[in-house]
Computed example of a mutant assay.
Amino acid sequence: MPTSLSKIKLFLDNHIGQEIHVTAQAGRKRTNEYDGVLSETFPAVFLITLDSDEKLGQVSYSYTDILTKNIEINFV
């Protein structure tokens, strides 16, 4: 995974439209896992459109979440 915010954004820009699996830290020893499609990137955040069985519809994360390892992403 890239090691700077600009490289992370560029990396995600090149993967828009691809299926993604996200594991997010949700507190002490808890994680949330989502499957969806990387739909958009913005200057500070990126959007993931979740699969139809998810209740939320979309989630957004900042590039710093990847840099600080608060979330882990894997492209399917």
Rank of each mutant, 00 (worst) to 15 (best):
Q18G: 11
E33T: 14
S60Y: 03
P2D: 03
L5R: 07
I66E: 01
T23Q: 13
R28E: 13
N14P: 00
V37W: 00
M1P: 02
V37T: 15
S60F: 03
E40L: 09
E19V: 09
N14R: 14
L56G: 06
A24D: 02
G57A: 11
A24V: 03
R28M: 11
T31M: 10
F75M: 13
T49V: 06
L10P: 00
Y63C: 05
K7I: 01
L56D: 05
N70A: 06
D35K: 04
L5G: 05
L47D: 15
L10T: 11
Y63K: 07
P43M: 04
I71H: 02
Q58D: 09
K9D: 02
I48L: 04
D35Y: 11
L47W: 14
F75R: 11
A44T: 14
I71M: 05
F46Y: 15
E19Y: 07
I8V: 15
I71T: 02
Q58N: 12
V37N: 03
L56K: 14
N14H: 09
Y34F: 15
E33G: 03
K29V: 02
K7S: 10
S39L: 07
A44N: 13
E72Q: 11
L5W: 01
T49Q: 12
T31Y: 15
V76N: 14
A26M: 12
D13I: 07
E19Q: 14
T64Q: 14
F75I: 09
L67I: 04
T49P: 01
S52G: 02
N74R: 13
G27F: 14
L47Q: 13
I16E: 05
D53N: 12
S52K: 15
K9Y: 04
E72A: 06
V59N: 07
